[in-house]
């Protein structure tokens, strides 16, 4: 019992002695800026009040919903689901302050904000459009396909870029 009491006393002393050091350490830590990493709060879309599922479900499971949906769409042709990536981007399409298109690489992009915070690299946008249909239709594209004039006149293999094949 004696030994236990003495150990407890020692621990108490140690704790009291170290306490001021700890406070000083915390203060330094905050001053260096490392303590100020904020949880991201991406901008909510203006046009819709409610997402397809409650926020807490979307936060945890949006990847599962999208993963399931992509197979449904590609294999079974189900294109009207509320869990489509196009649907996501139609609402969550932040316009930058200068009115330019916000790409996924931009930290302002709705998806990029949290994914940068969580260090999760996604490759959705290597193939899929990273913004909504409206922004795509406004025509601010770097690499739009050649305009189609409806009757093929004036088009040749150079403008179209397709190969001519000759057989027989």
């Amino acid at each position: 019992m004696d030994s236990l009491a003495s150990i407890t006393r020692l621990l108490l002393l140690a704790a009291l002695g170290l306490a001021p050091l700890g406070v000083a350490g915390a203060a330094e830590y905050e001053a260096s800026g490392f303590g100020e990493i904020a949880v991201p709060s991406p901008e909510k879309p203006v046009r819709a009040e409610q997402c397809v599922e409650p926020v807490e479900v979307m936060r945890r499971d949006h990847m599962k919903l999208l993963d399931h949906q992509r197979d449904e769409t590609v294999i079974n042709g189900e294109r009207d689901s509320k869990y489509s990536l196009v649907g996501c981007m139609n609402c969550h399409n932040p316009a930058s302050e200068s009115g330019e298109v916000v790409r996924y690489e931009d930290p302002q992009h709705f998806c990029a904000e949290c994914h940068a915070y969580a260090s999760v690299k996604i490759d959705c946008f290597e193939c899929h459009a990273d913004r909504g249909l409206e922004q795509l239709q406004q025509g601010k594209l770097d690499s739009a396909p050649p305009a189609w004039n409806g009757n093929g006149a004036g088009l040749n293999s150079a403008t179209l870029g397709h190969r001519l094949e000759v057989s027989q």
Partner: peptide, 17 residues
């Protein structure tokens, strides 16, 4: 010209070039 129109319509529809 019709076949060219097919090709360019496909390009426009799917965005390839």
């Amino acid at each position: 010209a019709d076949v060219d129109a097919c090709v360019s319509a496909c390009q426009r529809e799917h965005g390839w070039r």
